[in-house]
Design a protein around this nucleic acid. Structure first.
Lengths: 347, 347
DNA sequence: TTGGCAATCTGTAACGTTTCAGTATATTGG
DNA sequence: CCAATATACTGAAACGTTACAGATTGCCAA
């Protein structure tokens, strides 16, 4: 029995990154006391607390994330789960910026967890939960009956969805009011005398597909316009597909005189298709489109646009997850963003 | 002296996440042996190794990241440092997708570290290094004399830059050959009989500003064309600014008959400005633009485009950092991407 | 038989943090 | 004055991993 002394003595040189032990040595207190003083525990004397916090600030102490995480299980990580194959002209960066804005003055880090089309969307979520890699998760491409949301609810891990679910379960979300968007779009087209309208839908299967389709249909019957079915594409299709199918559509006898498009990228293709068919935007047909950056009016000033702010979505989603992590009631962390008016080109 | 036994006994129920201790219990081996068997250490018997690895796979053992990180300092994290204010119509998502593609089958996670215009760009890098939050870093908006690169070289942390530096220091990078791009653009405009050319530059101060300007200038003298100075904007300016200044430029007597643009978003504004001045693209002036997605030809088919692949950039950057972390020679981890030809609209 | 030496395997300490169960000292009630 | 109690602090254990320093076994040469 040799009791060798290998334990590293307190580092007095100050060159290493400071730890609680460093602080304890400097203040002459025990590690426990320091730990508690830093988190304002009640059983620490007021002066001691101030002293410790002062020294900590002075030497730039920052808790070691691995230490905290190992001991407490708290990762201080939010994961944004992304499909890496959809959405050209991507709003993803905006969401990311929105999220980072909110977590900037928190201890949280943002990790991006990708999955590809071939994978089960549940895979990345399962990975995160099983490995305990995040305190909170943000998912998008939300479905009415979303297995990921169900799974995370079961496992009790805080999350927020971009888009709503429809399972009778309550959880935080942020959504753009696509029902209102489609309705406003239809009404503004009707206001221009258009009455045979087509819709370029969101991806079938996602919740906001339903919202959009319903908003479109309800407004149609409101204004007494009729629908020209255009079910062969959604905004998940490629530019080329949308363009070709739009051209086909516009060459038919019963072509629409108004089109509502759920994404800016799709709109570019739609307009190209319209022009392929020899028609003119604004004369033969009007198009209302969502956009997330102010670019469509540069493209064709005849376009009518509605703005969707994805940076805001990112911020709201981050706030929602952090709120849930912080113990707030999930039901109170739901927000719906109202579309702007339908905007024509302004000089 | 009470020697209380609080230590948690081995969990035999199997409901918790398996650790090395779980594996040790199941195999009847010591924790050390299991740890070594899993990483193919030489002093472990062949059969034991196989047995441990089999069991580990069966029960889905995954090393606890916090444990590893605390013990070894290895974070298994790559950080992408981003400016959250520049670059509308952002290529950022493509870079992210490229990075995630490469790290997908590694133990690495990607964290996004933002900084805003108001901050010193060195701040986030310093934070990462000081807190040891990442094993490798990717930065963009690289400058000829880049304090971030210098700092990370001093501190010995592996990184890769999107864009080159010019400090006589060697480090991994990926860059698009903007010298070649500008040159090709000028030559193709000259081929169309254009000989008074203007350039919408990258942000002044970034390395590729110089590359682009030089490529432009050298090619101009090659083909015997002249430059129409247009120094009042760069692609960092807002859409409105670029549009307005372009319109001003195009109303002058000595207006250019050809323009080279360093970004797709800027090009939208440039074209709008051209049209504001009552001129017609393709007739009065030709424009060559870089683009990162195939959208510009939908915008105006008269545009000439050169494609820059940011997903590839992301992949290359990730490969570079991982390579450096893996001990490869930094000088061997540099890549330059050659521009595509200048492409006209193809039906 | 013994000593030496590979070949395998193991216990313990340590990374930095939080929490449990104390301890020491001062304060109060009776 | 003594016991009970509040106040302010502390050591040790534990989270899961790896590395150091041994320990055990079998085999072979001397």
């Amino acid at each position: 029995m040799d009791r060798r002394v290998t334990k590293k003595d307190d580092d007095t040189s100050g060159t290493e990154r400071p730890t609680l032990k460093t602080l304890a040595f400097m203040t002459g207190l025990g590690v426990t006391t320091v730990s508690r003083a830093l988190k304002d525990a009640p059983e620490i004397g007021a002066e001691t607390r101030r002293r410790v916090q002062l020294v900590a600030k002075q030497i730039g102490y920052r808790p070691n994330r691995a230490g905290v995480r190992l001991r407490t299980g708290k990762t201080n990580v939010i994961s944004l789960v992304l499909n890496t194959e959809h959405e050209i002209m991507s709003f993803v960066s905006d969401i990311i910026y929105g999220v980072t804005e909110v977590i900037a003055d928190t201890p949280y880090h943002l990790i991006v967890t990708p999955y590809s089309r071939s994978q089960d969307p549940l895979d990345p979520v399962r990975y995160l939960v099983e490995t305990g890699s995040a305190d909170g998760v943000i998912i998008s491409r939300t479905q009415p009956n979303d297995p990921r949301a169900r799974y995370m609810l079961e496992r009790g891990i805080p999350f927020a969805t971009h888009g709503r679910t429809d399972m009778g379960l309550v959880h935080p979300y942020h959504d753009f009011d696509n029902y209102a968007f489609a309705g406003e779009a239809v009404r503004s087209l009707a206001g221009k005398g258009r009455n045979r309208l087509a819709l370029v839908t969101p991806p079938v299967g996602l919740t906001y597909y339903g919202h959009t389709v319903n908003g479109f249909a309800d407004a149609l019957s409101d204004v007494g316009a009729s629908e020209v079915p255009f079910n062969t594409v959604s905004i998940d299709h490629t530019i080329e597909q949308i363009r070709m199918r739009t051209a086909q559509l516009m060459r038919r006898d019963n072509r629409p005189d108004g089109i509502v498009s759920s994404s800016a990228a799709a709109t570019l293709a739609v307009v190209a298709g319209i022009e392929d068919a020899g028609l003119k935007l604004g004369r033969d047909v009007d198009v209302v489109s969502k956009q997330s950056s102010e670019l469509l009016h540069l493209f064709r000033r005849e376009l009518l646009v509605v703005n969707e702010n994805f940076r805001l979505a990112g911020s709201e989603l981050a706030r929602a997850v952090l709120g849930w992590i912080g113990g707030a009631d999930p039901g109170s962390l739901q927000s719906l963003s109202t579309p702007s008016e339908v905007l024509p080109y302004r000089g």
